[in-house]
Design a protein around this nucleic acid. Sequence first.
DNA 1: GTGAAAGCGCTAACAG
DNA 2: CTGTTAGCGCTTTCAC
Lengths: 344, 344
Amino acid sequence: MKFEAVTIKDIAKALGISTSTVSRALRDSYEISPETKQLVLDCAEKLNYRPNPIALSLKEKRSRSIGVVVCEIANSFFSQIINGIESISYDRGYNVIISQSHESYEREVMDLRYLASRSVDGLLISVSTETNDISHLKALHEKGLPIVFFDRITEEINTHSVIVDNFKGAYEATEHLVQNGYKRIAAIANSEFLSITTERLAGYREALLSNGLPPDDAYIKHCFYGGMIFSEIEEAVNRLFTLKQKPDAIVTMADKLTSGCLKTLKRRGLTVPDDIALVGFSNSDIAELISPPLTVVRQPAYEIGRDATELLLQLIESKRPVKQFEKRTLTPELQVRESSFPKK
Amino acid sequence: MKFEAVTIKDIAKALGISTSTVSRALRDSYEISPETKQLVLDCAEKLNYRPNPIALSLKEKRSRSIGVVVCEIANSFFSQIINGIESISYDRGYNVIISQSHESYEREVMDLRYLASRSVDGLLISVSTETNDISHLKALHEKGLPIVFFDRITEEINTHSVIVDNFKGAYEATEHLVQNGYKRIAAIANSEFLSITTERLAGYREALLSNGLPPDDAYIKHCFYGGMIFSEIEEAVNRLFTLKQKPDAIVTMADKLTSGCLKTLKRRGLTVPDDIALVGFSNSDIAELISPPLTVVRQPAYEIGRDATELLLQLIESKRPVKQFEKRTLTPELQVRESSFPKK
DNA sequence: GTGAAAGCGCTAACAG
DNA sequence: CTGTTAGCGCTTTCAC
């Protein structure tokens, strides 16, 4: 059930010339006479000739496709990133093959195996929250597969990466709460080894410290599965409320955690920000429609995708091995709304 | 900058046998002696041999990839669909190449040309809101490209399609409003020629009629760009408020329109549902967190993607031309929340 | 039971 | 300026 495509051979036959002449004419080679060129071009047009990318890939030993691994497509932050990835790849004639890890290390390893078997020319990845051991990535990298990390990166592999200033994002969110009169600010983050966790918690701690509030680890909760299991977030929140000194504000360090946390607070019948304030990393387009309108740290997701793709294509298309790597850091934005209004 | 892959040739050389023997051994052909087979298998294992999918594609004249065209990835409904598409394709060893039309007809045509040039084995598409003329799709279909439509379908091409019962979804949403005491129920929909528009508006009209409320076209507004331009929705809403008899409720017929409409209502300082009630098609995971919690028609998006992919792979892998086509209709669910609470 | 050779669509080195 | 040929990795007749 597949339609027969027109090949270079058909053109050659139609014109009574050799395939190589056709090939050269199509690529506008200087060796071909203008007349022949025109003839070939016209014929190609007439027969509606389309070069077969697979044959080209086989020849050039490149697939013109890149692999993308994210935890979840149906997450505003990542779908916006994919949007950015897609826009650049499309322009440059690359396919994008998307895989989801669903925050599972095991699934991530499988995804990578799959992408490698589809011989992608390069890889864009934000590791799963479960991923601590990155030997699967190292192996690919050592074999020469160009990789660019974004969002959740690793220092263990020397290559380009694109992130936002996570420290700053969390710092500003936390300091904003302090300035609005909140004193016992808790944090809910992903697993401990994730780069975004470390960086964001560092910003959070520093903001507390420089505002004279000693950070207390009892106020920091981790979600090992990144909130893929709702009960995980629920439990983290509930735990915070068992403390003698209940928190009066929470900073959530990722999209999924932000919505999950708010959901939990509501189910507990708490009013935000009167009972407890909330600021979270979130790229939801409807943060302003939420009740209460959410104060968020919003990341330039489209730009992250775009930049990561540009860097990756640069690696892929570079003639000589790239030795200098760039860690591009974009700036997140704190969007203040009601969920963090000054404490009464 | 690409790593050299192990080929069948390397194995042959290492073992001092021919490539055809290796090929046959790997495919477990009956013609090869068990000993040779084992030898080859072991060697392949040792060298970490991976078949080159591109070479296979060239030979088999199939790419093992399918193209997907949606208006926008960063839209809950579509990202959930893609999630479903991805899960099936992954299991069956197919790549998914995603393109976005951004609700532009022109862009859709370009996407299709691109996908065709990448020689996808099949196509999953939900047409853009601008798409009225589908000759570009017809051309591909006639050439033999298997196509499955989902969500926004067309009757002009005889093939499988997967939708939800749009009539029912809109009917229930509208009737629910009527039962809660609303009398002047407006509708905001996509462009007129879209299948979802026709079907949903039919359900809306029928619900009004069978409840003794004559439908009035002045209460129906279309967004030609599907709300990709926010001002479009804003204007639609504003127009409704210029009517002598202002509406007391709105039904929005798509995700983007729902959030856009609510945003507009809020900016106008209106309270939902006291000033005006709202029910909309939406697959947002945080509909319950919105202020007020939104009554929505939720579609089984993951299942739509899953079913559409199954049907497509069925077409692709079918030995004989398929003549019988299925229009699979899933059931949407009305989730009642505050935004449509009984009129006071 | 195994090997040699052709061919998928295309490019490129080598001849004229 | 154009044609011949080989080869990318793999499968598959066709010989032996």
